[in-house]
């Protein structure tokens, strides 16, 4: 039994300004081991972010269950922390105060809160930028702050919603390396949503492939590459084979979308 157990999960969305609902995620079951790094990949609109938000407890579910450490998820909790894609830093707070933010909200005691925030600012390599404000930072630095903020509250599960989605390719690779370096220190359970296939393989112990209409799991691929992962692996035969397999899934999904659009 995994640390996170998702069974028969369906999520409905109410269409804005109408009583109609549509199903964003249907009948998803997934078991995630403690300490594993799971990536979720799929084309846009496949419900991968919706699934993550549901695990975070930010959106309600229609059917099924999500359990973390045997407890049913109904709302956000200190056992989970979320890293968002972008624009989720408070622009009026410094780097240090942004990292403090989660600690304040979770009512950590005042004594060590500043020191603890500073420790995580340093951990993501921003020690010299603690007093800077988000508008003075590059996109990559901002996401470091985002990661530090999530890790500072010491969650059991780290949820990441396309955290590097807005970054350029080079920065993205550096951030991936950095994320793994930090993750390997204490191997917290990590769920990482992305639409980039290479990123999903490079980071994950397992890649969950999702398809659309409605969002469902197409396959779960175990990534049998040694850790620590290095850039050299990107060209290894095993990596290339994983990439090919995952691409086919995504391509099929895009094709089915094309057909739907043609019919309409």
């Amino acid at each position: 039994m995994g640390q996170i157990e998702i069974r028969g999960l369906s999520i409905d969305y109410r269409k804005p300004k109408s009583d109609e609902t549509f199903t964003a995620v249907e009948n998803v079951s997934l078991s995630i081991e403690k300490g594993s790094f799971v990536t979720i990949v799929g084309s846009s609109g496949c419900g991968k972010s919706t699934l993550l938000m549901a695990i975070a407890g930010l959106i309600p579910r229609a059917r099924g269950s999500i359990q973390v450490d045997g407890k049913e998820v109904s709302k956000p909790g200190p056992d989970r922390a979320m890293v968002f894609q972008d624009a989720s830093l408070l622009p009026w707070r410094s780097v240090h105060a942004n990292v403090r933010f989660g600690l304040e909200l979770q009512r950590w005691t005042r004594d060590d809160i500043d020191e603890r925030a500073m420790r995580y600012v340093r951990m993501v390599g921003l020690g010299a930028f603690a007093d800077y404000h988000p508008h003075q930072l590059s996109g990559g630095m901002r996401q470091r702050v985002n990661i530090a903020r999530a890790l500072a509250v010491d969650p059991d599960v780290l949820l990441m919603d396309e955290p590097f989605g807005a970054l350029d390719a080079q920065t993205r690779e550096v951030m991936g390396d950095e994320l793994l370096r930090i993750w390997e220190r204490d191997k917290k359970t990590a769920i990482f949503v992305t639409h980039a296939i290479d990123e999903a393989i490079f980071l994950g112990d397992r890649v969950v492939v999702m398809g659309r209409n409605p969002g469902h799991i197409r396959d779960v691929v175990d990534i049998d590459l040694p850790r620590p992962r290095t850039a050299v692996m990107l060209d290894s035969p095993a990596f290339v084979a994983y990439r090919k397999r995952l691409r086919e899934y995504i391509a099929a999904d895009m094709q089915s979308l094309q057909m739907v659009e043609d019919v309409v």
Partner: peptide, 25 residues
């Protein structure tokens, strides 16, 4: 709304959202 959602993911209550997001924002 992005900031509100981020705050909620850390368990922010209504009062927190008001004092730490809406007011300074």
């Amino acid at each position: 709304p992005d900031l509100v959602r981020a705050a909620q993911s850390f368990g922010a209550r209504r009062r927190d959202v008001f004092l730490k997001i809406a007011l300074p924002g």
